[in-house]
Each structure stands twice: as C-alpha cells, then as structure tokens.
Design a protein around this nucleic acid. Structure first.
Lengths: 123, 123
DNA sequence: GTAAGGGCATACCTGAAGGTAAGCTCATGA
DNA sequence: TCATGAGCTTACCTTCAGGTATGCCCTTAC
C-alpha cells in the first residue's frame, strides 16, 4: 500500500493524524466500520461461519456485498478463509488474531447501544 | 421512533436480532459507524469542541456533512450542543454520557488499529 | 434430465451519500 | 463601506455503494 504515507504523517506531527485522508489507519477503520463489515466482524466474533450462515444471519445483505466485504476484510488481515474442496465447495470464515482484537471493541460498542436502548424501555 | 419494532424482535426470538433490518440498535450503530460519525465521536472523546475546530481536525469533511452528522448524533442523544448567542454565534459540541459510553469502544477500536499498523513497521 | 445446493463473479442500473458553491446573519474592525 | 467570521442552510450535481438478475461449476438426489 501507498508508501510514504506514514512518513508524511510523521513529518507533519499533527495531533489528529488519523483524521487525515492519507492515513492508513483511516482506510482500515473505514473498512471495519463499513455498512456490512461491522456485522460480519460481530458475527464472526461468536463462531467461525460458513458463507451461507453469514448470509442468513445478517439480514438484508446480498451475496454480492457479503462476498465483497469478506474479500476486503481478508485482504486487511482481519478475516481468514478456508476452502474445503468438496462439491459443492464449503468455505468457512473466521477472525484472525487481529480480527478478534478489532472485533472486540466493536462488539462492546454494539452491546452498549443495545443495553442503552433496552434501558430506555422501548416497548 | 417506529414502535412495535422491538416487539417483533422479541416474538421472533432469533439469535442475531440486531442483524435484522427493523432493529433500532442497527440504525443507531449505522449512525455511529457512519463515514463521519466515527471521527466526530472520537474527536469529542478528547475535548468538547467548537464547530470550526471539528471541521479543521477532521480532514476532508465538508461543512455540510459535519452539520448533518452532528444533527443526527444530537438527535440520537450522543452529542449535546451549546450555543453562545454572541455575534458571530459560538456553538460548542460535546459528548453526553451515552456518547462517552459509545465513544469509548470506538476510540479503543481506533487505537488497536493504529497500534497494529505501527507494529507492522510501516514507514 | 433436471433441479438444487454452495460460493462466488459479472453486468447493469438506481438511489442516496456526499461534494461544491452560494447565501444568510449581524457586528466588529480596517 | 465593505470584508470578515462562525455556523449553518439550500440548491444542484456527481459519484459510487449497493441492489437485482444471471451465469458457472460440479455433484448428488429425485
């Protein structure tokens, strides 16, 4: 990925480096907090899952977006992918160590929100 | 907000309620993890900030999107807004208790990602 | 023989997110 | 007197995320 990016960060020495558009972490955070990335990471936090299991647990996601989201997360090193060369092939996804590290605060975030919402006594 | 939504959740009794499109928490999470919402919440986690301070620290955000993002976060009860009726008016934003509660895992998420990226020795 | 299952890839198209540019307000300072 | 600043709002336009539909591959089951 774009070399020299971090170098520029260091040179500027600003307080909020991550808020700069040319920040690697910013791209990563964008992937993690993407529309579907959030739910994939939270789902996988509980168990490794097959493609169709993910598709079924995350309501509203299309196969296209699921595949695309998974590809990005695998590229980023957050998710691993294992293919059993049976027919039909069975593909399983799970979190890498980094993925679990990142998924944890995400799950926490989600838990706090649901807790707050139920505390509000919404029917 | 849409009543009966939580009721339906309870009735279905599924494992991943939040992944349903008609889940309140899902909307909230979508706001929090929105393109700019993330950075606003992380920024405010450190200090209360003026509108222009937010605009300057979050590189690439337009005034329109900043205003819009803040409006949503205020509506959701994550951010408060204080107007000093001077001229020009001075508007300050900060996190509510709920906002701090939600911003914390978000900041943690961001920290873990930056830590990992710098551990990779990029640059 | 044909339907279904599993995990995609691909093409095409739409809607909404987000960018740009301008305006508004009112008071202060040059 | 006119520009400037702070914090927006509005109008308009563009981009691209994401939806739908389809195909593919190989095999077992009906």
């Amino acid at each position: 990925m774009a070399e020299g990016v971090q170098r520029r960060r260091v040179e500027t020495g600003e307080r909020y480096d991550v808020f700069h558009t040319d920040c690697l972490a910013r791209d990563m955070v964008d992937h993690v907090t993407s529309r579907w990335g959030v739910w994939v990471l939270i789902s996988l936090q509980r168990n490794d899952l097959r493609f169709y299991e993910l598709r079924e647990s995350i309501q509203g996601i299309s196969e296209k977006m699921l595949a695309q989201t998974l590809r990005v997360l695998v590229e980023d090193g957050l998710v691993w992918r294992k293919v059993e060369p049976t027919t039909p092939p069975q593909v399983t996804y799970g979190l890498t160590e980094f993925g679990r590290d990142v998924g944890e605060p995400l799950t926490e975030l989600f838990d706090r929100i649901t807790r707050r919402l139920s505390a509000l006594g919404t029917a």
